[in-house]
């Protein structure tokens, strides 16, 4: 039986918030704007964005700052919705926030490996707020990569990142990023397994699909671009896939050639990732996001009164932020409208 009572308050809130998402018409308007200033001005006219962007001066703007505000907006929504939950469900929402924290850590690590001062990215951190468990103030004092990792000693990231200090510099970033991703998914799947039956079912399916897409992209890149042993490919892939279980992943990891891999993927539900030879790599990320986007729209019709409603909203919101950023980036590079559309997660 659907648990109407449990989700009554939060779903009412979600319904209201969903009403404030941009519509297809809004996207048409945004894509037709000639200047970034006009885009900002248009967004400011929308209730939610008006509040969010009130400190942005569209005549004298800083694009990076604008994009960061949009990303922070996603985190802010997670944080606001935290108040509607308790116990393991609160932990679940917090686990989703780890993704943003991890992305900040990646940025810091990247900067440190490049030998630059980590202070220089202090204004690009998304989770630099009171909710994070990481003391970013301390991390920003770091003078080197060793220092940075040492400053994480009070966090769970310390033990998992420290071994990679011994790795050669050209591979450090790559390994650390993979390990951080692994950490995030391990946390998330760990919490999902403790949810109630109905929520566990639907989230395992959704996150499982997410993991499938992640694993396929990872194995694809590992085989094509990096010289990585099959053992490592297998070890860095994530458990808990929906269509590709661990044995299937192991099989993919030990395939001898890149072509065999493409054939395997083409034979699966995820053939859309690789079926176009020319645009395979440039759109792979976007294709996987668009797949999830349509999956969510599909869920929206049938998954009600469970955890999925809030998940759907939070992801749609995130895709909206990412699409606005894409549109603005396209402007920066002077793409035509048709070209810009190609980079959107949603189909316009």
């Amino acid at each position: 039986m659907p648990d109407i009572k449990k989700y009554a308050a939060i779903n009412t809130k979600i319904k209201y918030l969903e009403g404030q998402l941009l519509t297809d018409e809004d996207y048409e308007v945004l894509l037709n704007k000639d200047r970034v200033e006009d885009i900002m001005f248009f967004l400011k006219g929308k209730q939610v964005y008006g509040e969010l962007l009130k400190d942005i001066d569209e005549q004298n703007h800083d694009l990076a700052e604008f994009e960061l505000l949009l990303l922070k907006n996603i985190v802010r929504h997670y944080e606001q919705l935290l108040f509607y939950f308790s116990g393991i469900y609160k932990k679940l929402i917090k686990a989703f926030l780890i993704r943003f924290e991890v992305s900040d850590l990646k940025l810091l690590i990247k900067t440190a490996i490049k030998g630059e001062d980590v202070q220089s990215v202090s204004h690009s951190l998304i989770t630099f707020t009171k909710h994070t468990t990481v003391d970013f103030n301390k991390l920003l004092q770091s003078k080197s990569l060793e220092d940075l990792i040492e400053n994480m000693s009070q966090t769970p990231y310390y033990n998992i990142l420290k071994p990679f200090l011994e790795e050669s510099t050209d591979r450090q970033l790559f390994y650390m990023e993979m390990t951080l991703d692994q950490y995030y998914f391990r946390k998330l799947t760990g919490i999902i397994s403790r949810l109630e039956v109905e929520d566990k079912r639907v989230l395992r399916k959704f996150i499982g699909t997410y993991i499938d897409l992640y694993n396929i992209q990872w194995i694809y890149r590992a085989k094509k671009l990096f010289n990585i042993t099959p053992e490592e490919i297998y070890n860095y892939s994530l458990p808990g896939g929906y269509r590709f279980n661990e044995d299937a992943i192991k099989e993919l990891s030990y395939l001898n050639s890149y072509n065999e891999l493409i054939d395997k993927i083409l034979g699966s539900k995820y053939s859309f990732l690789v079926d176009n030879n020319e645009t395979r790599e440039i759109y792979m990320e976007r294709r996987s996001k668009r797949f999830l986007y349509f999956l969510l729209l599909n869920y929206k019709k049938k998954e009600q009164f469970n955890i999925m409603e809030i998940m759907i909203y939070l992801h749609l919101l995130e895709y909206e932020m990412r699409d606005i950023i894409s549109i603005i980036e396209s402007h920066k590079y002077g793409y035509t409208m048709e070209h810009s559309k190609q980079f959107l997660i949603r189909k316009v």
């Binding site: 998992i160 071994p163 390994y175 993979m178 053992e231």
Partner: peptide, 14 residues
């Protein structure tokens, strides 16, 4: 080198 990498990929805590 290979063994070290594999161990690291398994979150081996030395």
């Amino acid at each position: 080198l290979e063994t070290d990498r594999i161990l690291r990929s398994l979150n081996f805590r030395r």
